[in-house]
Design a binder for these strands. Structure first.
Lengths: 168, 168
DNA sequence: TTTTGTAATGTTATATTATCACACTTACGT
DNA sequence: ACGTAAGTGTGATAATATAACATTACAAAA
């Protein structure tokens, strides 16, 4: 049974959410003495268009216009900058990028990814991080980077799905 | 400081390890009534060449010979088969594939990946899985697939690294 | 044993994701 | 204004993966 695609449902004032993220990004870049140039900011805005992960070549299309053909390096440079400065995350299992809601600091990445509506929810709990750290330590392993990506159905999509295929 | 690449260190009888994996794969396929054809078996053998993850196009080169030019679909079909039957895993953060040491059953994927020697260690503990499941449940999220990929340095590489760059 | 249907493979082309190399421009401190 | 480093433009290409359709091999039925 194929998943029904849908728009991410996340009841909140997204215009606010997005502009907060942009403002915070500006603060962070100012504090760090790095430049949030027009291209970088534009890419960040596009990524914050909603709470789904965005593909590099979609950004490319969106940035390109009638008079302006943006090339891949432009996008990837902007993405690299945003990644380095902790403003976005890369979702490995999707080859896509999503805004970071707690930008600035290094923090481990744990995501719930809805395969129906594509929403990406970033987790902030420490239990998982600790459990992983313990396991790693027991193997004498020194962690530099954790990637935790959990696929499935978000609450609203799970509900919709159950409705469409009710269990007898 | 760049990581020193190295061969994966994993003191064991790898010939045995590898041939056990192959034999187990044959048992599993027989039980399931699916065919471990020559190409599929060859790919599985190559993946079990050591405990590092292998790239699809490296398999392609290794399978190709003077008289035989193997094309991408051949490899990807074999990889799909092996993935579907739980004989290998895909490491998303590397776009690469690794043998599964507990093949057959569905199980969550948790890997320690050494960025120096490329060894991939599959974890089997349940703490992490439970911690993730709890977090997901608290968001009303229904999990279908977990990907946990932890990058860093394995024990031997961490030791070697510390030796090369001693802390005063 | 031949037939026949399905699974598997071969083959060509192309899609998708990402990087390299080098030229040019802009911002910024001096 | 000048020099420098950071940022961007541009063309080419690398690396990863899939689509579409033809052909072959296998195993069970007739």
């Amino acid at each position: 049974m194929p998943l029904m695609p849908a728009k991410p449902e996340y009841p909140h004032d997204h215009a606010q959410c997005s502009s907060d993220a942009l403002a915070e990004a500006q603060r962070i870049c100012a504090r760090r003495g790095v430049r949030l140039t027009e291209t970088r900011q534009k890419v960040l805005e596009l990524i914050w268009g909603d709470h789904a992960a965005v593909k590099a070549y979609d950004l490319l299309e969106q940035l390109s216009g009638p008079g302006r053909a943006v090339r891949p390096p432009t996008i990837y440079r902007a993405l690299d900058f945003l990644l380095e400065n902790g403003l976005i995350h890369r979702i490995e299992s999707l080859n896509a990028y999503v805004g970071c809601p707690q930008p600035g600091g290094q923090h481990s990445s744990q995501f719930l990814i809805c395969d129906a509506c594509s929403i990406v929810i970033e987790l902030t709990g420490t239990d998982v991080v600790h459990a992983v750290a313990d396991e790693a330590a027991s193997h004498g392993f020194e962690i530099t980077r954790q990637t935790i990506e959990v696929h499935g159905l978000c609450g609203p999509c799970a509900a919709r799905h159950a409705e469409e295929a009710p269990v007898p």
